[in-house]
């Protein structure tokens, strides 16, 4: 077993902490999402939905907590989806050449970049949960210490798998394309349906059937559902909609994301082995 991927991880993290602007923006961005989008939306949603009577016997969750899970999903989606862009610049400015010319197997590059992406995603997730709790998000309400711990591990696992999937996707695009403009437009195009055809920020129950069906396969939905299961429990209501998650639901989230990540891993291996120096 070789551990060269650690070198790639080391370099990535070194630069992450060196670029103060990059570091700070990745810390601030999730907080901004919560502070501006979250608070503003939850105020109006809660006002609009206050007339709906809460479902008896079910814990009612405010919109802020509901969308908190979505914000985590959105935030890691964007940073991982655009995370591969740096590979394109590395390729363009020949930074990759040294590594590609070394005896290091290509999958180590993917692994190293993936791990650093996951680290950054964990930092952001922690930021959102921490800041969210501060402004009144109802994550882990009434949980014991052990339950909270399990919930956090569950969330991090899901976030990790999800991040790897999108990083591999974005890395594959980066290594295949020649110019950043092309990459930018592909990513923007990709992020639109991912963003809107999901239950990250609002329930999909009122969607047309087709979109609702599609949203079930959206990794963003799978992640948001998984986080809600761990953070809010398996039985709650929000805006008059009753959410119940079974073990099968959470298994689907895990397996779906795992399937997605493995497919993307295969794609990126294929693309990376193709790349010429």
């Amino acid at each position: 077993m070789n551990f060269e991927f650690r070198a790639i991880y080391w370099r990535d993290m070194l630069k992450f902490f060196r670029f103060k602007s990059m570091l700070i923006s990745s810390l601030i961005q999730p907080v901004m999402w919560l502070a501006f989008f979250g608070l503003a939306m939850s105020e109006s949603f809660d006002k609009l939905t206050s007339v709906i009577p809460p479902i008896a016997g079910v814990q009612n969750v405010d919109y802020l907590s509901y969308m908190g899970a979505g914000i985590i999903a959105m935030d890691v989606l964007f940073s991982s989806l655009f995370g591969g862009t740096s590979l394109m610049f590395d390729k363009k400015y020949s930074l990759l050449r040294e590594t590609l010319a070394s005896p290091v197997p290509r999958y180590h590059i993917i692994l190293g970049v993936g791990l650093s992406g996951v680290t950054k995603a964990f930092i952001q997730t922690s930021m959102i949960i921490g800041f969210g709790k501060l402004i009144g998000m109802d994550f882990f309400m009434g949980y014991t210490f052990t339950e909270t711990l399990i919930a956090i591990i569950g969330i991090f696992l899901l976030v990790g798998i999800f991040t790897l999937g999108f990083l591999f996707l974005s890395g594959s695009i980066a290594i295949t394309l020649e110019n950043p403009e092309g990459m930018q437009s592909i990513l923007t195009l990709l992020s639109m349906p991912l963003f809107f055809v999901s239950n990250a920020l609002y329930p999909v129950d009122a969607f047309p059937a087709v979109l609702r069906f599609l949203s079930m396969f959206n990794p963003l939905t799978l992640l948001a559902d998984g986080i809600r299961y761990f953070a809010l429990g398996n039985n709650f209501s929000v805006m008059g909609i009753h959410y119940m998650y079974t073990s099968a639901d959470i298994a689907i989230s895990f397996l779906g994301l795992l399937f997605f990540a493995l497919t993307m891993l295969a794609t990126s291996l294929w693309r990376f082995n193709k790349v010429d120096v």
Partner: peptide, 25 residues
């Protein structure tokens, strides 16, 4: 030593060498 320069400009002299040593185990 490639025809084109390919150093990591955001890393120091030492770090560039360190990285190389690391990827060659």
């Amino acid at each position: 030593v490639f025809q084109m320069l390919c150093l990591d400009h955001e890393m120091t002299v030492c770090e560039n060498l360190e990285y190389h040593g690391k990827i060659y185990s």
